[in-house]
Structure formats: structure tokens, C-alpha cells
């Protein structure tokens, strides 16, 4: 056996487990899902080939799919922009070694280690319209305090039904921000810590303000990590499922569906495997395209130091 062949075998042995696992548990089921999306199947009887009909139905059957997609995009925009903005802000502050930086780092990261379902259940209690609901109790205190001062505002109709299907998509935004900001903060902070201190010292000597340092030194130099963060966030908001499923008690409606809950409901409660698989294929294409675009953008103007 030549050295080159033995190297190939050696590499093959190491790659084989990952290759087989990926093939068996990701690639083949993925291909099967693509096949299902071209079939009419209730998961119980015989499957029937119907071509692209399931994809056509996504846009024909009311606006359910588009509504769900719109909710995903709303979460991506509202929660995503807040998360990135706050994570950058907190990371920049911690990078400046403000007092209690270590404590803040742990405190902000803490929600990220809690299971997503537990986080959702926690926020169900916070938003509750019964006497357990801290958010409504707080709003009631604010309202009565203002009225005690003689103000006529606010006049909220309390308790606010945050968990009502109509408001759920808005109600999950603060929860997502609370849950994931810490993770992105740590990600950005790690990138910031890798920037040589001499750049900031030079900027200070040139009279740059804190914001100018952030704008012209920090941001360009963490650009790649920022892009990775954006890709993560985009994927996670497109795949968003747990909180809606828990907060809607497994019965989301068109007011609260996101793509993943729609997929699940179609396949597992309505037994429309073909339609559900078509949603899954669209979800995959969206994530794939979004990731490609983000990566392409990140490659432009690479800055090295």
C-alpha cells in the first residue's frame, strides 16, 4: 500500500462514522421528505404521486402558508434586530470593562442554558391573565399609580391577553430577546476581545469618541462573527417552533402559526404528510438561500490586521 493510499484509508476511517450518520439520519430522510412533498399521503394508506400539487396548494389554500411565513419574517425582523442590537451594545459595554462585567456576562447568558420549553412555560406564567401574571400585575400597578396622580392616561383594558392567539406573535418577541441575547453577546464579546488594544489607543490619541471607535474599529473587525451571528439568528427564527407550540397548547391558529408549527400540525394532527413535507422543503430552501446570501455578503471586503 502506498503512503498516499494508506493516508486515504486513514482519512476514510475517521470520516466514515460522520458520513454514515449524516447519510442515514439527515440526507436520506431529507430526500424522503422531498419525495413525500410530491405525493399525496395521509401517513396511513397508500401514497399517490401528484407532482408539484402540494406546492401549488401552499399558495392556494387560503393564505395560511404565507401568513405563517410572514410571522417568521416578523420574528426575524423584530426579535432579530433587537437581539443583534442589544447583544452588540452589551458586548461593547462589557468589552469596556464596566463595573460588574463578569456578573452581567453570566446573568445575560443564563437564560440561554434553560430549555426552550421551560422558557416558554415561564413566560406563560409571566403573561398569565390570572393573579399569577406578573406582567399584568405590573401594568395594573402602573395604571393605578398614574390614576392616583390624577392622570387620565393610561386606560388599558386589563388584564391584557398576551397569550391570545391574536397577540402571541408579538408576545414572543420579548421572550426571544430575553432568551438569546446573552448567547450573541458572548459570541460578539469573544470577537471583540481578539481586537488588539493598540488600535483603540491609537484612535484615542487621534481624538476618536467611543462611538467612533465602535463604528470604525470594532464593527469592521468583528464583521465575520457578526455575519455568523446573523446566519444563526436567521436559521433559528425560521425554524422557530417550541414557544408557539407550548404557548398555544399544541393548537396554533392562523393568527399564530409559524412555518414549523404549520408543518407539524399538517403532518401530525391533520395527517396531510404531502402538504407538510412541501412546507418543510420550502423551509429548507429559505434557510439555504438565506445562509448563502449572508455568507456571500460576509466575504466582501475582508479586513485583516
Amino acid at each position: 500500500m502506498t503512503e498516499r493510499t494508506s493516508q486515504r484509508v486513514f482519512a476514510g476511517v475517521f470520516l466514515a462514522p460522520a458520513f454514515f450518520l449524516f447519510t442515514g439520519f439527515v440526507a436520506l430522510p431529507g430526500a424522503r421528505a422531498l419525495l413525500y412533498s410530491l405525493q399525496k399521503w395521509d401517513g396511513l394508506g397508500r401514497a399517490e404521486w401528484i407532482g408539484l400539487e402540494n406546492f401549488a396548494r401552499l399558495f392556494q389554500q387560503g393564505d395560511l402558508f404565507l401568513k405563517a411565513l410572514g410571522h417568521n419574517l416578523f420574528i426575524m425582523g423584530a426579535a432579530g434586530s433587537s437581539v443583534i442590537g442589544l447583544a452588540l451594545l452589551f458586548a461593547a459595554l462589557l468589552h469596556r470593562r464596566i463595573r460588574g462585567a463578569q456578573l452581567f456576562r453570566v446573568a445575560f447568558f443564563f437564560p440561554n442554558v434553560i430549555a426552550a420549553v421551560a422558557v416558554a412555560l415561564l413566560w406563560v406564567l409571566l403573561y398569565s391573565t390570572t393573579h399569577f401574571g406578573i406582567v399584568n400585575a405590573f401594568l395594573a400597578q402602573v395604571q393605578s399609580g398614574c390614576h392616583a396622580l390624577g392622570w387620565t392616561w393610561p386606560n388599558w383594558r386589563l388584564p391584557v391577553p398576551f397569550l391570545d392567539s391574536r397577540f402571541l406573535i408579538y408576545s414572543v418577541v420579548p421572550m426571544i430577546i430575553w432568551e438569546v441575547t446573552g448567547f450573541y453577546m458572548v459570541l460578539f464579546l469573544a470577537a471583540m476581545e481578539g481586537i488588539p488594544e493598540s488600535y483603540y489607543e491609537a484612535a484615542k490619541l487621534d481624538g476618536a469618541t467611543g462611538f467612533q471607535q465602535f463604528r470604525h474599529i470594532t464593527l469592521p473587525l468583528i464583521r465575520e462573527v457578526l455575519t455568523v451571528g446573523l446566519v444563526f439568528l436567521m436559521i433559528s427564527t425560521l425554524k422557530f417552533f417550541d414557544a408557539i407550540w407550548v404557548m398555544e397548547n399544541q393548537t396554533p391558529t392562523r393568527d399564530s402559526h409559524v412555518l414549523a408549527t404549520l408543518l407539524y400540525q399538517k403532518v401530525f394532527t391533520e395527517y396531510n404528510v404531502g402538504y407538510g413535507s412541501a412546507v418543510a422543503v420550502c423551509l429548507f430552501v429559505l434557510v439555504f438561500l438565506g445562509t448563502l446570501v449572508s455568507l456571500r455578503l460576509s466575504r466582501a471586503e475582508r479586513i485583516e490586521y
Binding site: 403573561y127 398569565s128 391573565t129 390570572t130 391577553p161 397569550l163
Partner: peptide, 20 residues
């Protein structure tokens, strides 16, 4: 009950057995 549309079955049934 105010807020009923956002209550689960257990929440609302607890409201009932607690005479709320």
C-alpha cells in the same frame, strides 16, 4: 372572566374551583 381568552383549561378550571 376578563382575560379568559388567554387562559388554558387548567388555569380557567382553577379559577372556577377557587371561586374566582
Amino acid at each position: 372572566q376578563p382575560g379568559a381568552m388567554a387562559m388554558t383549561h387548567t388555569e380557567s378550571q382553577l379559577q372556577f374551583v377557587n371561586n374566582r
